[in-house]
Design a protein around this nucleic acid. Sequence first.
DNA 1: TAAAAACCCTAAAGTTACTTCAGGGTCAAG
DNA 2: CTTGACCCTGAAGTAACTTTAGGGTTTTTA
Lengths: 155, 155
Amino acid sequence: MHSIGQLAKRVECPVETLRYWEKEGLLPTPYRGENNYRWYQDSHLERALFIRNCRNLDMSLAEIRQLLSYKDQPDIRCDQVNRLLDEHISHVTERIASLTLLKDTLESLRQRCVTEKNMDACEILVGLSCDQAQGTTDKCSSHLRGAHPGSSRSI
Amino acid sequence: MHSIGQLAKRVECPVETLRYWEKEGLLPTPYRGENNYRWYQDSHLERALFIRNCRNLDMSLAEIRQLLSYKDQPDIRCDQVNRLLDEHISHVTERIASLTLLKDTLESLRQRCVTEKNMDACEILVGLSCDQAQGTTDKCSSHLRGAHPGSSRSI
DNA sequence: TAAAAACCCTAAAGTTACTTCAGGGTCAAG
DNA sequence: CTTGACCCTGAAGTAACTTTAGGGTTTTTA
């Protein structure tokens, strides 16, 4: 039996995140002591590790929910797991490609101003003001986050 | 003079986004007709294009706000613009590196299940349940989004 | 000319995956 | 017995919108 703090240490995530996963139905509700504290079994630990591993692999909670539901039906075929993973991999691949394009655009934009000029002569600002589409218009990545995520998931 | 719908077409973004940028102080409040409709001038168009271009380059609204404030002081030196861009480029570079690592991990995980097994024998699920940290623990990218952004910014 | 379609408005809530905050119990150590 | 570490809940905040609800206006079509 682990307290929520102990579980958090083992899983290397904040206590609040565990409570959040529980509220979202990803982590089963644990036993409560008479002081209303949560007490977790090893099965909870395993599940929490699974979730954290998936999150480290940048899967969404929706994807993880899917995966968990597959996992809870041991008798069916696992090709759906394979498919989910394949799709996730292709999303990541797409995102890499789009960010690489982005980087090229940013670097060529940066090249336009190598000397220190005044603002009104800065070629970067000129480049940004024009009507041509700059960078990826990003039709692809409706699924993958871009360049400014929330704060980190460190312990 | 453009109506908000016309501006949205030119800028290739939803009408709601323009109203949002205005509320956030990025786009100046336009003239209002007697029916309370917004009417934009060419200066608004230019500004909106600037913002959209920056967004296409995956800059945050905070970064854009900075850039716009530089732009509004034509007499000062533009080295701050260069610095902002350099930082943004390095964020994007970091994110690419971390996603590339991620992809490797995902692909090696995917290799573990090439045949169709039952769920309880699926090596992928086994791999995801283990205690070892999988993928990037992502200490770097407190600034760059990951793999699941909001819905796209298409028109 | 009247009704339907297209366009405009505001304010508020929803999205993701948490984090932070406010306010308050519980427990072990000194 | 009090200080600090730990636990609880519920609500609000984060980014950059999107969606919804509810309601005007203008243009088009029948």
